[in-house]
Design a protein around this nucleic acid. Structure first.
Length: 511
RNA sequence: CGGGGCGUAGCGCAGUUGGCUAGCGCGUCGGCUUUGGGAGCCGAAGGCCGUGAGUUCGAGUCUCACCGCCCCGACCA
């Protein structure tokens, strides 16, 4: 049966390409590494993050600078995140489509402001073979322009609206400094691009999708986020307004986990996306765009992981339950057959389960390995358990151990998964609250940041000068102006200028 | 793109004032014994010492250049 050897580990190092002259070292990957070799989070959180991703084989460095190979385990997590999001997009009336990877330079230039935002990071295709192209092509950093060009042709009448299209794609932004999943030169994402008849409708869409992101992050990734509006300085260059969800990771750094833009008519005008309205006058559409990326994978890792490795939220875990059969020669058949039955039984009720029947490793090794990979639940089954008619069930989060009667498995496992999902979200929420503090002055903020990172509420007069001063002194930025709690309290002052605060905003250092 | 560090087996490293056939641990492969929290023994394979030039009778070791990686800063979904 396939489930007897579901775990095919790479036994030897693999060379990712025949020739990789630029980064020979980086192209080699290790198969079996262990938790004891993970850097602890307290010692060096960044190193822990790199270690855990490489050693759980979520991803590794590719031959191309700043790019990564997303390996099957990491990709499986991304697929689950993607599917959870996609389901929600469909449920809110969106459809998927696909647009070209290449952007003619003239298109890109039509919306000058947003081009400026990306210009330094855009790679260009200039030749085909040895022939220079008449017009060079940008490799998409985002697809507003090419999609708007299509919309201009597709939209004629108010009856064609709204257009609610999403695209799953790769994009390229040639970053100077990269980090696995959080910032790579090429990454995977989704970009929704919608066109509406009225401003109100477009604004509503912008908010609706931000809320979809928030709900999905909390329900599926067990990652609590702060929703709010970006400041003028931090917003997408082509947008009228940018809204974001901001997560707070275990090291106290903020992560912009998703954005939703109200584009107004900034693209509609240069691209001529016009429609004939009911009143027989020609009008420009109102647009939105919104996206989340493979960055969410990094967010999940840094929201839940601990010194033993990853902790996967059950709802998106590639494997939710791993069965470890424990046997000696005389009990081998008995145990393996029982393990196979349990595996089949759980599979039948929709649990993503693997049975690790490899004989070259002992149980203890497997416990550590699957814990490192963050599998939410482990089921141990040996001759003693079979005799007593139960199995041993262990939670990844706290190694809480339970003896579960064999007959109750198909009820208790889904229950345990649901409870773990809830506990992870609660733990993350609690941590976020603990890592959020209020400061009144820049000195206070700087001092607080010396001790521990996190979210910091402070008064802001709305000036770019304050943002710059805070950035200069503390490297923190305004993550957003939250929808809740951003009313300044009575007498609240800007933390730099001392002028009356317009908003109460969230500062943090961010990835 | 500036400052610092580093490139020796898949990974982590040692390699003396230049000197014999370049080593150790882990991992990998084969065999035996094992299996409820990282097993043990025996055997084997595995190297353009980052690349190129130079100094030298002789370079992993010294010189220069280049490439790459990591860390810290400026820029970013």
């Amino acid at each position: 049966m396939a489930i007897f050897h579901p775990v095919r580990h790479t036994q030897a190092a693999i060379f990712c390409g025949a020739r990789c002259p630029r980064t020979r070292k980086a192209s080699f990957i290790m198969a079996k590494e262990f938790v004891k070799e993970l850097t602890s989070q307290a010692e060096d959180f960044s190193q822990w993050y790199i270690d855990v991703i490489l050693k759980t084989q979520m991803a590794d460095y590719s031959c191309v600078r700043g790019c990564m190979n997303i390996r099957p385990y990491g990709y499986a997590l991304w697929e689950n995140i993607r599917d959870a999001m996609d389901k929600r997009f469909k449920a809110t009336g969106h459809v998927n489509a696909y647009f070209p990877l290449f952007m003619p330079e003239s298109f890109l230039k039509k919306e000058a402001e947003h081009v400026e935002g990306f210009a330094p990071e855009v790679p260009w295709v200039t030749h085909v073979g040895n022939e220079p192209l008449t017009e060079r092509l940008a490799i998409r950093p985002t697809s507003e322009t090419i999609i708007c060009a299509a919309y201009a042709e597709w939209i004629q009448s108010y009856r064609d609206l709204p257009v609610l299209i999403n695209q799953w794609a790769n994009v390229v932004r040639w970053e100077k400094r990269t980090r696995l999943f959080l910032r790579t030169s090429e990454f995977l994402w989704q970009e929704g691009h919608t066109a509406h008849r009225t401003e109100d409708e477009a604004r509503e869409e912008t908010m609706k999708m931000l809320e979809v992101y928030r709900e999905c992050c909390e329900t599926e990734l067990a990652m609590p986020v702060m929703c709010g509006r970006k400041t003028e300085k931090e917003k997408f260059a082509g947008a009228v307004e940018t809204y974001s969800i901001e997560a707070l990771l275990k090291d106290g750094n903020a992560l912009q986990a998703g954005t939703s833009h109200f584009l107004g008519q900034n693209f509609a005008k240069p691209f001529g996306i016009k429609f004939l309205d009911e009143d027989n006058t020609e009008k420009f559409v109102w647009q939105t765009s919104w996206g989340v990326s493979t960055r969410l994978v990094g967010g999940v890792v840094m929201t839940h992981g601990d010194d033993s490795g990853l902790i996967m939220p059950p709802r998106i875990a590639p494997t939710q339950v791993v069965i470890i059969p424990v046997f000696k020669d005389d009990s081998k058949t008995l145990v393996l057959e029982e393990a196979a039955r349990i595996c089949a039984e759980l599979e039948a009720i929709g649990v993503r389960v693997k049975c690790d029947a490899r004989e070259e490793f002992r149980p203890g090794y497997k416990y550590n390995e699957w814990e490192m990979k963050g599998v939410p639940l482990r089921v141990e089954i040996g001759p003693k358990d079979i005799e007593k008619g139960h199995v041993v069930m262990v939670r990844r989060l706290d190694r809480e151990k339970a003896f579960v009667p064999r007959a109750e498995l198909s009820v208790r496992i889904p229950e345990a998964l649901a409870r773990l999902q809830k506990d992870l979200l609660e733990a993350a929420r609690k941590r976020q609250v603990e890592q959020t503090t209020e400061v009144a002055t820049l000195d206070e903020l700087a001092e607080a940041l010396e001790k521990k990172r996190g979210f910091f509420w402070a008064g802001w007069d709305g000036s770019a000068e304050t943002e710059a001063a805070v950035k200069e002194r503390t490297k923190a930025s305004i993550r957003n102006i939250p929808f809740e709690g951003s009313e300044p309290t009575a007498g609240m002052l800007d933390l730099v200028s001392g002028k009356p605060a317009k908003h109460r905003v969230l500062f943090a250092r961010a990835y």
